[in-house]
């Protein structure tokens, strides 16, 4: 494992810690999209089915379990915690799941490496992860008042993807057999979705202000 990959994973992990910390300390999930959290949970469930039939390393297994457990944990807080659930922006978070889930499922059935149940589900998770942030970005645009932790959460999620691209470039040059075009294409799309957010995030940060969206 190279440093880019490790830094990417840690950035991903850190974003989840931030979101749990925000919910736990402020007992609020204001500004967070439950749709995005549900989509991420679906991503983890469909991708990490391989926990049952393949083993890579202790590191991978532990990280997969953390991602699964934390995504269910966040959803539990948003849905069932007495105080937290009252802070959810239900009226603003109107993005429909099927708009993303259906096209990703169809695409996974057409463009995949092998037409088997596990492989199609895995491919579906790759496509869905690429676009799962969209409900969150839409909510961000609507509510505009972004608190620091939510801004940082999205920043570290974006950083995770950017670091994975560096990891792919590194592995492309160091591992002759390392070619995964499908993952790269989805990853580029995913990182691209953050471009606009990054622009405003860095601008606000430079000006020493809270994140402001136009």
């Amino acid at each position: 494992m190279n440093l880019f990959r490790l830094a990417g994973d840690m950035s991903h992990l850190f974003s989840i810690v931030l979101i749990l910390l925000k919910i736990y300390t402020s007992k609020s999930c204001a500004g967070l999209s439950m749709k995005t959290q549900e989509l991420y949970t679906l991503v983890f469930v469909t991708r990490y089915l391989d926990l049952f039939y393949s083993y890579v390393s202790l590191y991978n297994t532990v990280m997969k379990l953390i991602f699964l457990a934390s995504s269910f944990g966040i959803l539990w807080y948003m849905r069932y915690h007495k105080q937290v659930k009252q802070t959810y922006d239900r009226e603003q978070d109107t993005f429909r799941h099927y708009i993303l889930v259906v096209p990703c499922a169809v695409l996974a059935l057409i463009v995949n490496n092998e037409l088997s149940v596990t492989e199609v589900l895995w491919t579906f998770s790759i496509y869905l992860e690429a676009v799962a942030i969209l409900p969150q970005l839409v909510l961000l645009q609507r509510t505009k008042n972004v608190d620091n932790l939510t801004g940082q959460y999205i920043f570290f999620l974006g950083a995770y993807r950017a670091l994975y691209i560096l990891n792919w470039i590194y592995r492309y040059w160091t591992e002759p057999k390392y070619r995964q075009y499908l993952v790269w294409a989805a990853g580029l799309v995913q990182t691209g979705l953050y471009a606009d957010f990054f622009y405003y995030y860095l601008k606000s940060w430079q000006a020493g202000e809270k994140l402001r969206l136009p």
């Binding site: 490496n113 492989e119 895995w122 993952v183």
Partner: peptide, 10 residues
């Protein structure tokens, strides 16, 4: 890995 799928990333 079949068809270039890399199973060692998260």
């Amino acid at each position: 890995a079949k068809g270039g799928r890399t199973k060692d990333e998260l």
